[in-house]
């Protein structure tokens, strides 16, 4: 190797090292910012309420994890004593799953209609769905509440789930995906004698698998994180969801909060969404980045 070439090789090696260091430093800073509050919650859930109540936040795990989690799971804590996290987690799990499955079912079928069939008013319906994108739950919450009251659906799982099921976003996503499916599949199915229903179940649904998985993850977390609507529609403590229940545990300051139990409940509240993401990660990433064709 000549001197010049060696110098060049040395320079490019140094540049590579520098780039690696810079990117890693950036990533580590990012991870710290995101992870530190979670770490604090995790640590907080292993101390007694007295330790946290003194004001100096410990940074190392304490000895009381089992007791705290047992109390959170089975009894509850703070102002919200008597409502155990176990039941709330189950409620949340049910609600989030029903919302995700319902949204996917509704948007799959409506996207199927809009993308594959010509009927009068098709574009009108499409635009109506599109416009509702701009209306978040909060905007239509009063009329929706009124409707639910009139239907006598307050304080029920159905009342909790049904108003949140319609999904413009998912409908549009599926429509866009359906438009990328080559016409030849439709035509081949026609020649094979598959009617619209068969085509939907035999061809379209399997082709949408990765998209469905990705949307399930997103919509499950959307459902899990619902706060305002469950707060309004449910008074019955047996239907309380974990996200609402968690905030209700925190007092207004007249008594000391059982931060240790609250932290333990918060950690428990994070487990199912994290579980869903981890379980479906492979599908999720595939659904976002590629379509199986």
């Amino acid at each position: 190797m000549t001197v010049a070439a060696e110098a060049l090789a040395g320079r490019s090696a140094r540049r590579r090292v520098r780039e690696t260091v810079v990117t890693h430093v950036c990533l580590v800073i990012g991870v710290l910012i995101f992870a530190f509050p979670i770490y604090l919650a995790l640590i907080g859930s292993t101390h007694t309420s007295g330790t946290i109540g003194r004001g100096d936040v410990p940074l190392l795990p304490g000895p009381d994890a089992v007791a705290n989690y047992a109390q959170a799971w089975g009894i509850g804590g703070g102002r919200f004593m008597g409502v155990p996290a176990g039941g709330m987690l189950l409620n949340s799990l049910l609600m989030a799953s029903l919302i995700a499955v319902g949204k996917i079912a509704i948007s799959l079928t409506s996207a199927y209609a809009i993308a594959f069939f010509r009927f009068p008013g098709r574009m009108v319906f499409f635009w109506l769905i599109f416009i509702t994108l701009m209306l978040p739950v909060e905007v239509r919450i009063i009329p929706t509440f009124q409707v639910m009251v009139s239907l006598g659906m307050t304080n029920s799982m159905a009342g909790l789930v049904i108003p949140l099921i319609a999904s413009a976003t998912a409908t549009l996503l599926f429509r866009q995906f359906f438009l990328t499916i080559p016409d030849e599949y439709v035509e081949a199915a026609k020649i094979d004698g598959a009617g619209p229903v068969r085509f939907f179940f035999d061809v379209l649904l399997p082709l949408s698998r990765t998209n469905i998985a990705a949307l399930f993850v997103i919509l499950f977390i959307y459902g899990w994180n619902q706060y305002l609507w469950p707060l309004l529609i449910v008074n019955d403590r047996s239907l309380e969801t974990i996200v609402v229940g968690l905030t209700k545990m925190i007092g207004s300051g007249d008594a000391q909060n059982e931060w240790n139990v609250i932290m333990a409940t918060a950690v428990l509240a994070m487990v199912p969404p994290v579980g869903v993401v981890l379980l479906m990660q492979r599908w999720f990433v595939r659904g976002l980045t590629e379509t199986e064709k």
Binding site: P182, E184, Y185, E187, A188, I191, D202, V203, P206, L207, R209, E292, K293
Partner: peptide
């Protein structure tokens, strides 16, 4: 009762 062979074959990718 016809069968058709398409330009891009149109084989169902998941089958």
């Amino acid at each position: 009762d016809v069968a058709m062979v398409f330009q891009n074959y149109a084989l169902y990718p998941h089958m």
